[in-house]
């Protein structure tokens, strides 16, 4: 009892000292709480479906940010990893009867392998050339899908996949839980030593090389990590929709991911996640005006990018928080002095 009390007190101290000091952390904590508590408020299947699909696409958008946002390897064909994950999971589940718990990670492994295969030739390319080359890969894979209809189902895709769970609530917690865990892992990666090197490669690859770091290894690692997370998203999507079809490889899928990431703010991980959680439900919300759904979506995206070129979330964060000019620690915008070094904030 005493030990529990001590733990509670410590938890309260941590929350008060680490979370409540910054609005952005409060928002993230609320985001976790609302998502995890949502089924307690409503078990509406439509709402749950929208949140589950949003969670899957949030993983995909964050995985793009890990590769293109942090490492600067502009990938315009991210649907490749998503599609490989979806098709590999579907084939393993339907043809070899491997349950989702095995087929999704194995699908992700296939996407990692694809990341390696794509990454190696792409190492020689930069900027626009890299972007255009990556765009070609999902199209090539789609050609292969259509060329082998006996294995891939051709135009119809592979249908009849097993669900992760038949329970609405279990499904919800599995998908949302995986999203929260994977996005936290991606955010921790970008905050780690490896993440700093990714960042540095994007800013000045030559300087990183001059520091004795094998940038090739790190760029390949970024392709593989991004492929892994996108592959998981693809596998989850296939099992949720119960079909893996050519639409998972479409160019529009690749571009939608880029739109989400740019809208939320690249090189942040949480930006693309937030963007998906705003834009995907928004498209559902405007179903009452079906003729103008896409127009409304486009206007919202354009307005945000016009007035917030760094993306929505960094803009919001800059409005509610200030960075200390001396110790670089973030403070709530209403503070006059830094909460750590007491330097005067501008």
């Amino acid at each position: 009892m005493v030990a529990a009390g001590l733990y509670l007190k410590r938890f309260y101290t941590v929350v008060r000292g680490e979370v409540l000091v910054l609005p952005s952390r409060v928002i993230v904590a609320l985001f976790f709480l609302v998502l995890l508590g949502m089924p307690l408020i409503s078990q509406n299947p439509y709402l749950i479906r929208v949140i589950v699909l949003t969670s899957i696409f949030a993983i995909l958008a964050a995985s793009w940010d890990l590769l293109s946002g942090f490492t600067g390897q502009m990938n315009f064909g991210h649907a490749l990893f998503f599609g490989v994950g979806a098709y590999a999971s579907a084939m393993l589940n339907v043809h070899l009867h491997i349950p989702p718990w095995g087929s999704v990670p194995l699908g992700a492994a296939a996407a990692v392998l694809t990341g390696l295969i794509v990454g190696i030739p792409c190492l020689r390319l930069k900027h626009t050339y890299l972007a255009l080359t990556t765009m070609a890969f999902p199209i090539i894979l789609m050609g292969i899908v259509f060329a082998l209809p006996d294995i891939t189902g051709g135009e119809l895709g592979i249908s009849g996949l097993q669900r992760i769970s038949n329970s609405l609530i279990v499904n919800y917690y599995v998908y949302v839980g995986i999203m929260l865990v994977l996005c936290t892992i991606m955010w921790k990666i970008t905050d780690s030593h490896t993440g700093i090197i990714f960042h540095a490669i994007r800013e000045d690859e030559l300087a990183v090389k001059a520091s004795g770091i094998n940038t090739t290894r790190y760029k390949l690692m970024a392709f593989c990590l991004s492929g892994f997370f996108a592959g998981i998203a693809g596998g989850l999507y296939a099992h949720y929709m119960r079909i893996a079809g050519p639409s998972t490889l479409e160019v529009s899928m690749s571009f939608t991911v880029v739109i989400w990431a740019v809208f939320g703010g690249i090189a942040t991980i949480y930006g693309p996640v937030a963007a998906v959680f705003i834009l995907f439900p928004l498209l559902e919300f405007v179903r009452f005006w079906p003729e103008y759904r896409m127009l409304i979506f486009a206007v919202v995206v354009l307005l945000i990018l016009l007035y917030m070129p760094e993306g929505l979330i960094p803009w919001v964060r800059d409005k509610i928080e200030k960075e200390c000019p001396r110790c670089k620690i973030r403070n709530v915008a209403t503070r006059k002095t830094c909460r750590i070094c007491t330097a005067v904030l501008d």
Binding site: P45, Y46, S247, S252, L283
Partner: peptide, 16 residues
Amino acid sequence: LSMTDATNAMERLMTQ
């Protein structure tokens, strides 16, 4: 244009 839109529309018809 979007498979997810199609399934969401069907789910909406069923539940909403």
